[in-house]
Design a protein around this nucleic acid. Sequence first.
DNA 1: GCGAGTGTGTAGTGTTTAGGAAACATGACG
DNA 2: CGTCATGTTTCCTAAACACTACACACTCGC
Lengths: 117, 117
Amino acid sequence: MTQFGAFVQTARRSLQEGDRRYSLRQVAKRIGVEPGYLSKIERGQVAPPSEAATLRLAKELDEDPDVLLALGGKVSSDLQEVIRKRPRLFAQLIRELRDAPDHAVLRLVREVRDGDW
Amino acid sequence: MTQFGAFVQTARRSLQEGDRRYSLRQVAKRIGVEPGYLSKIERGQVAPPSEAATLRLAKELDEDPDVLLALGGKVSSDLQEVIRKRPRLFAQLIRELRDAPDHAVLRLVREVRDGDW
DNA sequence: GCGAGTGTGTAGTGTTTAGGAAACATGACG
DNA sequence: CGTCATGTTTCCTAAACACTACACACTCGC
């Protein structure tokens, strides 16, 4: 159930192959947690870390923050804020898109980016 | 800072005018919390309740669940799940829409509902 | 005047979150 | 051999979350 740990461990080890600065201990130090804690995270012995720690980890491992947060069972707080400001609107849109195929959602993204409003 | 309590209190009192079954005590009983707790919630003496309790309260007071959750600083967990399943896609879309006017978002909703994908 | 119902104040409880500290075991190197 | 550096294990905890329990004070309707 803890996709998160395995994903992080794989990503880190892959970086570690070419660069010994990506040992568990050094990564832990750079993102500001204890080595023991990161070890437990990687092996799913504890729940995924806080949003803040997850973001530091994503940056360190050069992974997509939203993906890593998702693996940790979280949604970025800035996205939540957007939704909370117009709850009815966004709730409706997101539920509407729950079963839409990727390409349909992507089309909307492009549509909005080409901002014709 | 606690919009939530005031909103709930106003809604409940408004219902109470025409129907004495909407006393704080009776509402508390129906949604399954202690009266003292609901009292503190209404006056913002404690943080807004859990998602589950908020949803029962919304139903009881016939208010929009997403709005009430938003006032409580939360986002419905089913919306979060939708986002977590395709984080990159939805993160992009939502950030893109952060500053879009309501009518633009609404147009998307309609577009999707008329499901042309 | 008293019982039923109302809202409130104080205190305390169990659980979850998000880690830290320190010791331990292993292996590589010089 | 000694000493790094690596990953791991055990134990502990401070703070936040989500409430409950219960006594108190007030106000009606009869």
